Simulated scan of single mutants.
Amino acid sequence: MSKSTSLLAAVALVVTGGVALADDTKVGILMDITGPIASFIPPLQNAANLAVNQANEQGGLLDGKAIAVFGDTTGSAQGAVDAAGKLVNIENVPIIMGSLMSGTTIAAAEAVAIPAGVVQISPTATSPAITDIEDNDLMYRIVPSDNYQGEVLAKMVLEAGNKEVAVTYVNNDYGVGIGQTFIEAYKAAGGKITSAVKHEEKKDSYRSELATLSQAGGSALVVIAYAGDSGGKIVKQSIEGGLFTNFIGTDGLRDEALINDIGAEALATSFFSSPTSPADNPNQGTLHELYNAAYGEGADKAFVDQTYDATFLTLLAIQKAGSTDRAAMAAALRSVASAPGEKVGPGEWAKARKLLMDGKDIDYDGAGGSYDFDKNGDVSGYIGKFVVDGNSYKQTEVMQ
């Protein structure tokens, strides 16, 4: 972890990009910098900063510079409310990129952003509950709902020859959403759930839950949780107890911290689902070249594409609105993300800025694909299948 990243992880709110001048615009970046997904964060901070830096190097935002203001949710609901409150009420940001976890995204939206009339766009929050929030058109995300990922995962599990599996999912917005969707879809497609156990976060031992799951049998254990919390512990304790050797996980478990803790050999027969980009998307290659040129490596890490795209869309929305008027952000965001309009992609800030200043429409297609929001602020998308490859993950399949 770099020195700058360490500083970000140590405080709840950090402003990057120097001292803000009168014409500069602060942009809220809400992330779970500390907490159960902390190991995901450094490359995602880089992705957000890359988008901001490109805007500043290619003409700036509105009449000045973009200033990224990071808020740390600490991976908790109260932390999300506190961090979002600072962004909205103290930093006076016009729009927020984030948060990442479903629970922190929902907490920040319901307690702070929606009451204040501030648009939030999450790059990674997947809970189905987000779809039905009464948000006054203020809540957006650029990954598909877990209602979709659960169905795709069920297909992946059956296609891999697993006709009977045990399932455990964490008792939070993320785990319950995808866990229940997966179970229903898997059973409807002919699979058998030998045992399904909902577990709590932040426990030291899950051996009791694992005993129940193991006794019921199954060719694999499906674990829907975060590797930095219960998910990693469950996999490790299962291996230590000789209970399961084959694991299937979702994006929360597709964390290199799991490989570092468990070892690649022990995960050789496991696979993981995660939102991804279209396989033939040239904009992904463009972003990865730009990202690695700036940071040396890391473009292939989980959710780099989506975090960059969400930040770039946030900046485009402000530029389209022509001001920091919060009430103008939702319409501006929808406009820059969808047709009609001239296509712009990652790194093309100068092109997009000129088109917008000339009064023309743009349509941003990102590294993660195109983002046409429905009435709920949701998008369709792609789910990838990932396997462990050395000390990282390799995508082997993409499903739309």
Rank of each mutant, 00 (worst) to 15 (best):
T5C: 01
T5I: 13
A12H: 00
T16G: 13
V19M: 10
L21M: 14
L21I: 12
L21H: 15
L21R: 15
D32T: 09
T34S: 14
G35P: 03
S39V: 02
S39I: 05
P43F: 03
N46P: 04
A55M: 12
N56W: 02
E57R: 12
Q58M: 11
L62G: 13
G64C: 04
G64M: 05
A66S: 10
T74V: 03
G75I: 01
A80P: 03
V81F: 11
L87V: 04
V88P: 07
V88Q: 09
N89P: 08
I90Q: 15
E91S: 15
E91G: 11
V93F: 03
G98L: 02
L100K: 09
L100D: 02
S102D: 01
G103T: 05
T105M: 13
T105D: 05
I106S: 01
A107R: 02
A107N: 00
A107T: 02
V112R: 05
A113R: 07
G117P: 10
V118Y: 02
V119A: 05
S122R: 04
P123M: 06
P123N: 08
T126D: 03
P128K: 12
P128L: 06
A129W: 12
A129V: 10
I130Y: 03
T131V: 09
T131N: 08
I133G: 00
R141V: 10
R141L: 03
S145M: 06
D146E: 07
D146W: 01
Y148D: 11
E151F: 11
E159P: 08
A160E: 09
N162T: 14
N162C: 13
A166D: 02
T168R: 04
N171T: 07
D173H: 02
Y174W: 08
G175V: 07
T181S: 14
A196G: 04
V197D: 11
D204K: 14
D204F: 14
A211L: 15
L213C: 08
L213N: 03
A216W: 01
A220L: 10
V222M: 11
D229P: 07
G231Q: 07
G232A: 05
K233M: 09
V235T: 06
K236G: 03
T245H: 15
N246Y: 13
N246V: 02
G249L: 09
L253Y: 05
D255M: 06
E256S: 05
E256F: 01
N260H: 09
I262K: 03
A264L: 05
S270M: 12
S273H: 09
S274Y: 08
S274M: 02
P275Q: 09
D280C: 07
P282W: 06
N283M: 12
G285C: 11
G285I: 12
N292R: 04
Y295N: 07
G296V: 06
D300N: 15
F303K: 05
F303R: 08
V304E: 00
Q306E: 15
Y308H: 13
T311Y: 01
T314Q: 04
L315Q: 04
K320L: 10
K320R: 14
S323E: 09
S323C: 11
A327H: 11
A328L: 12
R334D: 01
S338E: 10
G347H: 03
K351V: 00
R353C: 06
D358Q: 06
A367T: 08
G369A: 10
Y371G: 07
F373L: 06
G377F: 01
S380T: 11
V387S: 14
N391I: 02
M399Q: 15
